[in-house]
């Protein structure tokens, strides 16, 4: 929510009031939760209090479990996203530029797209066993499609006049690709990357629940299976914070950067 940043003209009181109210919402939520525990009167495994969750968090850190799981998750995530991104861009460019590649690959890709990634996990487990390989391939699969489709849209919407201008300046096919098509497609690639990175994060958690023996997803699952529900909630909160971190520290800045230099520029150019 960049509303605070986007509205510098608001009076100061209002600018402060908004995050304050948001924090109030979170605090109210926690307070209601804590206060409701004795009222509900259920077992801690069924309805743990925020304090229980905090203790479970400290315990997991002290035993070194959480850092190890976190590193495992991030490693799997980064590798899968990287491979899926590269493959998706490559296929998107190939299909966008070559009619033969389009005709050969598109039907297969559309067919594969209809089988949602979660449905692949069982067969991946059969083929690659539990753990890193299966998760890596599943994440690659998840990232591949948004990357491919966005790249493809980008290639198909490169303004023809840019292509014509480059050709008239004597560009070879390779120069055309490097100097015109790739930079022109970059904003679409960034969009695809953000979408794919989001899908992959959900995919990671699911894959770790079903097909791993470590990681944040596994922590969430293991906690519930052993009736250590506070651990499950720690896992969920860490997961949420991890995603917010990835989104705000990496994905949004990358997008903003390219929009500043490419996106708004390109639209302005096209409007005239």
């Amino acid at each position: 929510m960049s509303t605070v940043l986007a509205a510098p003209s608001l009076p100061l009181s209002r600018r402060l009031a908004r995050p304050a109210k948001g924090a109030l919402g979170l605090v109210l939520f926690l307070a209601l939760w804590q206060a409701s525990v004795p009222l509900v009167g259920l077992e801690a495994y069924f309805y743990p209090a925020p304090a229980d969750v905090w203790r479970a968090f400290l315990d997991l850190v002290a035993k070194g479990i959480l850092p190890v799981y976190l590193i495992d998750s991030i490693g799997r995530y980064a590798s899968g996203v990287a491979i899926g991104t590269v493959l998706g861009i490559a296929c998107g460019l190939a299909i966008g530029i070559s009619r033969l590649a389009d005709r050969t690959l598109s039907p297969t890709i559309n067919f594969l797209f209809a089988i949602v990634e979660v449905a692949w996990i069982p067969i991946f487990v059969i083929w690659f066993g539990y753990g890193f390989k299966t998760i890596l391939i599943a994440l690659t699969y998840v990232v591949f499609f948004p990357m491919l489709y966005n790249t493809l849209v980008g290639v198909r919407t490169v303004p023809q006049v840019f292509v014509n201008a480059a050709l008239s300046l004597g560009a070879t096919r390779l120069q055309l690709l490097r100097e015109v098509i790739l930079p022109s497609v970059l904003p679409n690639i960034i969009t695809g990357f953000r979408v794919g990175a989001g899908f992959a994060f959900r995919g990671l958690i699911f894959a770790e629940i079903v097909a791993a023996k470590s990681g944040i997803g596994y922590l969430i699952f293991e906690g519930a299976a052993n009736h250590q529900t506070a651990r499950t909630i720690v896992g969920m909160i860490v997961m949420g914070l991890l995603w917010l971190g990835i989104d705000n520290l990496y994905l949004k800045p990358i997008e903003r950067m390219t929009i500043e230099r490419w996106g708004s520029v390109t639209t302005a150019e096209r409007r005239e």
Partner: peptide, 20 residues
């Protein structure tokens, strides 16, 4: 034949590459 550097074109829509 094909487009080439011997025939330079100035377009109505400028066609400057926005990222350069």
């Amino acid at each position: 034949g094909k487009p080439g550097a011997d025939r330079g074109v100035v377009f109505q829509e400028y066609a400057l590459l926005p990222w350069k």
